[in-house]
Design a protein around this nucleic acid. Structure first.
Lengths: 215, 215
DNA sequence: CTCCTAATGTACGAAATGGTGAGTGAGCCT
DNA sequence: AGGCTCACTCACCATTTCGTACATTAGGAG
């Protein structure tokens, strides 16, 4: 019995990975809630199991911590997309399915939406280091494969571009969450009302299909 | 010749309206650029022709100034919409035209997009006082009239809802501006590239038409 | 001309905020 | 056992930031 196992054990007092992760989880909540400028280091510290000094020990400064948070939320949505498998659906059904998955993800993960909105507030000046492909993920490639398949079958318009489809899907799904508060104030509709949810989801699917379908 | 004219004259040194407006214009830029939490009162002061003390004199505090800015940018887009006249277009053409006008407005007024995004960051907790109808404006009513006309002619699906149409148009137009930085980082497409602009504009018009058109 | 009030300017303070210097001790290695 | 490293703690600081008490002036009223 070596002690290697103990190194990973939860009761270990000093645990680099656990501490870092604990900070990241709390920081994600705080940054998602208040944005970069509104988030307070001391506030995060109070809700962490460690002290403020640890941020600076592991993440250099507020910006470093923020970049780590951004990286984290993007990695999570990409991981979800990785699991998408629509190969056994007809092309147009596959597109609708991808749209629905994205729609659902945005609703289930408002922290992703809020962090991304805040990154744009800062003109994406605080962007995590790392490869662009790793962050972009497989989604556009998946759409391309479906399009290719659909074109061969004559179901999909050959002029259809994957990035355009992704833009349509994402703008609809993202805005519904990000702008729910002002949209509801202005037009008195509970944007995320469960009763409206199904209709909105269907509308998006219809839009995607009608955009891609062969004439 | 009464002196009433002089009261409005530009060379007047002390001018309530002009001072307030000057502050509002600068504050709009600053809040749009940095958001509520990131904006700095002293920074606004430095770029104004008056002193910081005037904010508090006219707008009570930072929140009051922010609310005034929000009110202002919303009033401006509604004023633009007020001028829309599509009564002499065929219903489906009218819808496309309204979509294009909204699309163009968002592109021409990023400060509107940025301020609204920031309001949502704050869960719309800082919302200007005033009537909801005044802020919502005429856009939904205009869409409703076009739909009604189209249904009578048999061009438009009777199930079409004006708010849904407005959601489709706005989410597309808004996201294209608000999320341009992250979308471009991730998918390497200059979202507001002039060469892409026409295609995006057309895509939105097509989506709107296909959503509303009678089967 | 003088007074009075609305409008403007000056200078400052209290609290919050991001960040750090210096030390401590847990746990691994030999 | 004992030393060494690195994860961790504590107390502290320099600025920044919102806000205000108080002084001052423009300009209309009478």
């Amino acid at each position: 019995m070596t002690q290697v196992a103990d190194r990973q054990s939860p009761e270990r007092k000093r645990n680099k990975e656990e501490t870092k992760n604990n900070i990241l989880v709390v920081a994600t909540e705080e940054f998602a809630d208040k944005g970069f400028a509104g988030a307070r280091i001391d506030e995060i510290a109070a809700r962490t199991q460690t002290t403020k000094r640890m941020f600076y020990y592991y993440f250099s400064d507020k910006e470093g911590l923020y970049k780590a948070v951004v990286h984290r939320v993007i990695r999570q949505i990409r991981a979800e997309e990785q699991r998408v498998d629509v190969d056994d659906l007809a092309p147009l059904d596959a597109l609708r399915r991808i749209a629905e998955i994205t729609f659902d993800y945005h609703e289930a993960h408002p922290e992703f939406v809020r962090v991304m909105a805040d990154v744009n507030t800062n003109y994406a000046a605080l962007w995590p280091d790392g490869k662009q492909e790793e962050l972009a993920g497989p989604i556009v490639g998946q759409l391309e494969r479906v399009i290719e398949r659909g074109v061969e079958l004559g179901d999909i318009n050959p002029a259809t571009k994957a990035v355009d489809l992704h833009f349509i899907i994402t703008s609809f799904s993202f805005f519904r969450i990000s702008n729910q508060y002002t949209f509801d104030k202005l037009f008195g509709r509970r944007t995320i009302d469960p009763r409206d949810r199904e209709r909105m989801r269907r509308i998006l699917g219809d839009l995607v299909v009608s955009h891609a379908a062969a004439r």
